[in-house]
Structure formats: C-alpha cells, structure tokens
Measured scan of single mutants.
Amino acid sequence: DWREIAKLAEEALKKQQPVTVNGQTFNDPNEIKKLLETAQKAI
C-alpha cells in the first residue's frame, strides 16, 4: 500500500535511517526521497 510506504519513507527521512520496502532496503536519503515522491504520486 503506497500510503504505508509514504509513511515509512517519511519516518526514515526524519530519523535518518534506512527503510525496507517489499524486501528492498533503501539507505540513501536521495533514494528514500525518490521513493516517497513515487508513493505520493501513486496515492
């Protein structure tokens, strides 16, 4: 669910920690931002 992904990505950016989505881990803040943008577009 994109809403859940957006929430996870936002928290990861705030806490500056990696986030795992669908078994894929994102460590890079730039990648997390991209993930968040993608999720927000999909909602």
Rank of each mutant, 00 (worst) to 15 (best):
K34E: 11
E10D: 08
I43Q: 06
E4K: 11
D1T: 14
E31C: 06
K7A: 07
A9M: 09
T20S: 10
N27H: 11
D1Y: 15
E4G: 06
A42P: 03
E11F: 03
A39C: 04
I5A: 03
A39P: 01
K34D: 09
Q17I: 14
A39H: 02
I32L: 07
E31Q: 10
A42T: 06
K41L: 14
T25W: 09
E31L: 08
I5V: 07
I32V: 07
T25E: 05
I32N: 01
V19N: 00
A39Y: 03
L35H: 01
A39G: 02
E37M: 06
Q40P: 02
L35D: 01
L13A: 02
E10R: 12
V19R: 00
I43A: 06
K14G: 08
V19I: 14
V21S: 02
A12G: 09
F26N: 00
Q17T: 13
E31F: 09
E11L: 07
I5K: 01
I43W: 03
A9F: 08
K33D: 03
A39K: 02
T25F: 10
T38R: 15
W2M: 04
L35W: 04
K14T: 12
D28M: 03
T38I: 13
V19Q: 01
K34W: 09
P29G: 05
T25K: 08
A39S: 04
L8K: 10
E11T: 07
A9W: 04
A12W: 02
L13N: 02
K15I: 08
E31T: 08
D28E: 10
R3Y: 15
A6T: 06
G23S: 05
L13Q: 03
F26V: 06
Q40M: 14
I32E: 01
T38E: 14
V21H: 05
L13D: 01
E31H: 05
E10T: 11
Q40L: 15
D28G: 12
P18A: 13
G23Y: 03
K33E: 10
Q16Y: 09
N27T: 09
E37D: 11
Q40T: 11
Q16R: 14
G23K: 03
Q40A: 07
K33R: 15
W2L: 04
A9Y: 07
A9G: 02
G23M: 04
Q24I: 15
K14L: 15
T20R: 08
P18F: 06
K7V: 10
P29Y: 12
D1C: 10
N22Y: 06
K14P: 01
N30L: 14
F26S: 01
T25Q: 08
K15G: 09
N30P: 06
K41V: 10
P29M: 12
F26Y: 14
K14A: 14
N22S: 07
K7T: 09
K15L: 13
V19S: 02
L36D: 01
D1I: 10
A12V: 00
A12N: 02
G23N: 05
E37C: 05
T25Y: 10
T20A: 06
N30Q: 14
K14M: 14
K41F: 04
T38C: 11
E31G: 04
F26I: 10
E11A: 09
R3M: 13
V19C: 06
G23L: 03
L8A: 12
L8Q: 08
T20G: 02
K7M: 14
K33C: 06
A6D: 01
I5M: 05
D1V: 07
K15Y: 13
Q16S: 11
A6Q: 08
Q24H: 12
E10W: 10
T38D: 10
L8P: 00
Q40R: 15
D1R: 15
N30T: 12
E4D: 10
T20M: 08
K14I: 13
I32K: 02
Q40Y: 15
T38M: 15
P18M: 07
L13R: 01
Q16D: 11
L35M: 06
A42S: 09
I32C: 02
L35R: 00
R3I: 14
A9S: 04
Q24G: 04
A39M: 05
T25S: 06
A6R: 11
R3W: 15
L8E: 05
D28T: 15
L35K: 00
R3L: 13
F26Q: 02
N27D: 11
K33G: 07
A42H: 15
K33W: 11
K34Q: 12
D28P: 06
N27W: 15
I5G: 00
E10P: 00
E31R: 03
T25G: 02
E31P: 00
K33Y: 08
W2D: 03
V21R: 01
K33P: 00
